[in-house]
């Protein structure tokens, strides 16, 4: 690192790569904090309503399909693994393997979505909608908002895949991949909390 004085002029901008790496990572952590707070509001609502209506939660959660839920949990955990393997590959300078793992991760995200689609359809089929009860409202808002985040993550990873195929990343430069990976792990983590809270109420 030559310090801040040596300036490279790219598109009117110029930051030391080390500073850029640290900045992006720091920025993503801050963004992850905002996401946790966003869901924090929902977790707060969950806590309040579960305390208020314990029987409703105990009874109605039985309607949820535990098998599909568990399957989706496995799918997401697996996708976090493939994501991590992707990052390791590019750190070792293997962009082709990165592309493969990114593709796998995206496909697993897609599998999660398809699974969710069947779950929602089954609910609608039984005339269960958001608004049917507080419990189902929570179920739909929490999983729905999470689903939106899965889509956002998939869009991000698709961008990374395109950039990888265009040869933008190497073992010298992979910050965006790593940072996108962080985001994907967050999406995964939130589901790990949602699953027991909604499907596995004792």
């Amino acid at each position: 690192m030559e310090g801040v004085e040596k300036i490279e002029h790219v598109h009117g901008h110029h930051v030391d790569p080390v500073v850029e790496y640290q900045s992006l990572k720091f920025g993503m952590w801050l963004f992850i904090a905002t996401e946790l707070l966003l869901f924090g509001g929902l977790f707060a609502a969950y806590t309040i309503f579960r305390a208020k209506f314990p029987e409703m939660f105990a009874e109605q959660h039985l309607e949820l399909n535990k098998t599909l839920g568990a399957l989706n949990t496995a799918v997401l955990i697996l996708s976090s693994l493939t994501m991590a393997l992707g990052v390791t590959s590019i750190q070792r300078g293997k962009p082709k393997r990165l592309a493969l793992f990114l593709l796998l991760t995206i496909l697993l995200g897609l599998a999660f979505g398809v699974n969710k689609y069947f779950e929602y359809s089954a609910k609608f089929h039984h005339h269960i909608y958001p608004g049917t009860s507080i419990f189902f409202s929570l179920y739909f808002t929490m999983t729905g908002l999470h689903m939106l985040h899965v889509f956002a993550g998939m869009a991000l990873l698709t961008t990374m895949l395109v950039l990888t195929l265009r040869g933008r990343f190497s073992d010298k430069y992979y910050t965006p991949v790593e940072v996108s990976g962080l985001y994907w792990h967050l999406v995964d983590l939130i589901w790990i909390y949602l699953f027991p809270l909604l499907y596995l109420i004792a």
Binding site: L30, T34, L42, F49, P130, G131, S133, S137
Partner: peptide, 30 residues
């Protein structure tokens, strides 16, 4: 950074309340 997500979720829930009638803020629905 720390406060804005909370208004974001409150407003989303208000919108969901109006669109889907989720009932979080509606005494008639508990």
């Amino acid at each position: 950074v720390l406060a804005t997500p909370v208004i974001a979720i409150s407003l989303l829930l208000l919108i969901a309340e109006r669109v889907f009638g989720i009932g979080f803020f509606d005494p008639a629905k508990g």
